[in-house]
């Protein structure tokens, strides 16, 4: 099992992701540089958090046009699992691999803290180790995580069940209080129709050890490992 972690200039969660893959998936992890055209035969790709290209123009906009993203898009179209975390989610939206966009937090403040997430889908390559309705504790750290899409797109996202995670209270209630950034419908993470491309603002790779304050992110890496082992 070989997992690629893409590094853009300005990525800063790539090592956390690399380490989570190595230790929690017991897989070979490789870095994929943004200028490369070769995915090195990986079985899944992570787009890590950070500030690719300094967030110039818009968060994720320039990274979405980088050479490696052409390969990631082709891999995704063939059904390969791709997960974008934080900046990675922004990049996936900018690359139009996921619907909608991530806008400036309503508060205009950078939010860095633990949040609660309700698992909405437990049938995905990334979430099969969770149970729908389960509440996770995972950190966020972003200034532009307010998920936005027009009403027609939101209706489709909801209708097709594309929401993977929602910001919730510790008991799983979805309300404005639990929403750290103003995201539409408390959306913290979504998938594409096929379910092989996941984007999420929270950082599961920062919740894989009790020392980090939570181990609730482990499930994501282990779900993917189990999925790939079955494939």
């Amino acid at each position: 099992m070989k997992i690629g972690v893409v590094t853009f200039p300005g990525s800063n969660c790539d090592y956390d992701c690399f380490k989570a893959v190595q230790e929690q998936m017991e897989a070979e992890a490789v870095y994929l540089w943004h200028r490369e055209h070769d995915l090195q035969g990986v079985d899944a790709v992570f787009l890590p958090g950070g500030f690719s290209y300094g967030d110039y123009l818009r968060a994720g906009a320039i990274a979405a046009q980088s050479p490696i993203m052409r390969e990631v898009a082709a891999f995704a179209r063939e059904g390969g699992p791709v997960a974008g975390i934080c900046n990675g989610f922004q990049i996936l939206c900018e690359a139009e691999l996921l619907p909608g966009a991530l806008m400036r937090n309503r508060s205009l403040k950078f939010r860095s803290r633990q949040v609660h997430l309700r698992v909405e889908r437990d049938d995905l390559p990334f979430t099969s180790g969770y149970t729908a309705g389960q509440v996770l504790r995972v950190p966020i750290a972003h200034g532009e995580g307010c998920y936005f899409a027009d009403e027609a797109t939101l209706a489709r996202v909801e209708g097709e069940g594309l929401v993977a995670f929602r910001y919730s209270t510790p008991d799983g209630t979805i309300n404005a209080e639990a929403n750290p950034n103003g995201a539409a419908r408390n959306i913290a993470g979504i998938v594409n129709e096929r379910g092989n491309v996941l984007g999420m603002m929270p950082h599961p790779e920062r919740a894989v050890d009790a020392l980090l304050g939570s181990t609730d992110g482990l499930g994501l890496f282990r779900s993917l490992a189990a999925h790939l082992a079955r494939a």
Binding site: L57, A61, C93, E94, G100, A101, M103, F148, A149
Partner: peptide, 9 residues
């Protein structure tokens, strides 16, 4: 359309 603006927002 391709880069300078985000058609969604």
């Amino acid at each position: 359309r391709q880069l300078l603006a985000n058609p969604v927002t």
